[in-house]
Computed example of a mutant assay.
Amino acid sequence: MTTTDPPARLLDLTRSLRRAGRTATGVDRVELAYLSHLLTLETPLYGLARTALGYVLLDRAGLRAFCDRIQGKLAWGRADLLSRLPKGRQAAVMRAESDLRRLARQRCLPQGLVAMLRRNLPTGFAYLNLGHSNLTDRVLLGVKAAGGRISVLIHDVIPLEYPAYQRPGTVAPFRAKLDRVNLCADLVIYNSQDTRRRSEAQMRRPVPPAIVAHLGVDTPVPDAAALPPDLPPARPYVVCVGTIEPRKNHAFLLDLWQEMGRDAPMLLICGSRGWNNAAVFDRLDHLPLNGPVRECSGLSDRALAALVAGAAGAVFPSHAEGFGLPPAEALRLGTRVLCNDLPVLREVLGDKAVYAPLSDPYSWKRILEEWAANPPDPRAMATYQAPTWAEHFKTVLKLT
């Protein structure tokens, strides 16, 4: 491991490119946090992204322009002819790829990657992959061949632990990515001790050198004016924030509210619909009008923060988490949190959350009814010390 700045850093932005135009998830925000922070440092910085037709290399000026577009400060440009050749892609991705080609310091076909890296980056550069994307043999072996060192941030290994919850066809590729990290990484960055333990249990020995650095917890400034006219509800309400996917376990909440009946506090399910969850989607599609459960999607970050800040509590019955950003953000907004008793949530949230196992729905109902009847004590939430990005980067960047 090195404790001095590398001669240059190469940040992989393939995930951010592929998710252009979508609502940012936790992993997307991690990639953006790194990009924003690294742009403030003096160490030479480059960006790499895999497009449909090859690789694009950005210098610092190109990265600033890309960052402005990801953050919505600038609009994406028009889609060029090359971006329109591959069929079936979203318009925002085509426009983003086109802009990257216009902003590129250099670009190449896949077989030209090593030569492009050698021409532009000094030996000993640090390659950072933060988004579980582009972890291919071509990239990892290409970085090695060009004289770079590889650091990879692992968010979780949930696809291997809970394969039934995943999109069809995604488990084997994830297994292959982890095997490549196991073989090629000079350093693995884990977002929690729990993720490290679970990930290394899935790896062959010897495992790569590793560090643990909790993610920074940033929350938008709440803006109640950004909410639609019918939100927030007039009666006490509880929020569940996160993509509606099987491991988030919305079915548990729907069952719970069905048992509590119409006198239950309102449940606002805030998140976009994911995958492999047809039964839950069907239940959401048939929610009764003016019933105690409502699906709220498409809210801006500031509107969602306002909704969470005004809630009687936030609930997270997930079967598994890699870190748990939404419950940490809820605590930071001063909202009470009730969650499944997972080791990673105890690691990140400490004693500031309330934990109840999924095997005890009675405790969930009792706590929620109590919260609906009693406003929170703001003093308890004010003592939550959320991890910061400053702490994260202090740990990580002295080694990458």
Rank of each mutant, 00 (worst) to 15 (best):
L74V: 03
A33E: 13
R18F: 03
R197V: 10
W275T: 08
T395H: 01
R118A: 10
R235N: 09
G291A: 13
S272H: 07
T14C: 09
C339P: 01
R302Q: 14
A65Q: 12
I211H: 05
R204E: 14
A24H: 08
Y34H: 15
P288M: 02
L85F: 14
A91Y: 02
R332Y: 03
C296M: 03
G271M: 09
T219R: 07
A226N: 09
E321L: 12
L183Q: 14
V241L: 15
N182A: 06
L338K: 01
R196L: 02
Y165A: 12
G313F: 05
R302M: 03
F323A: 06
E391S: 15
V396L: 01
L342I: 08
L117N: 03
G291P: 13
P288S: 11
T2C: 01
L254C: 07
T136C: 06
T4H: 10
G21N: 04
P246E: 05
G298F: 10
A309R: 15
P7V: 08
L325Y: 02
P232S: 12
V308E: 05
L117E: 02
P86K: 07
W389A: 03
E321H: 12
A126Y: 01
R29Y: 07
Q166F: 06
G274Y: 11
A328G: 01
F323S: 02
R60H: 14
G310C: 02
K365C: 06
E31V: 10
Y127W: 02
P168Q: 07
R198P: 04
M94A: 12
L227M: 04
K87D: 10
D59Y: 07
L141C: 09
P378T: 08
R302S: 09
A146R: 08
L160M: 05
R366T: 15
L45N: 05
M203E: 12
P357H: 01
Q111E: 15
L57Y: 03
N134T: 04
A380L: 13
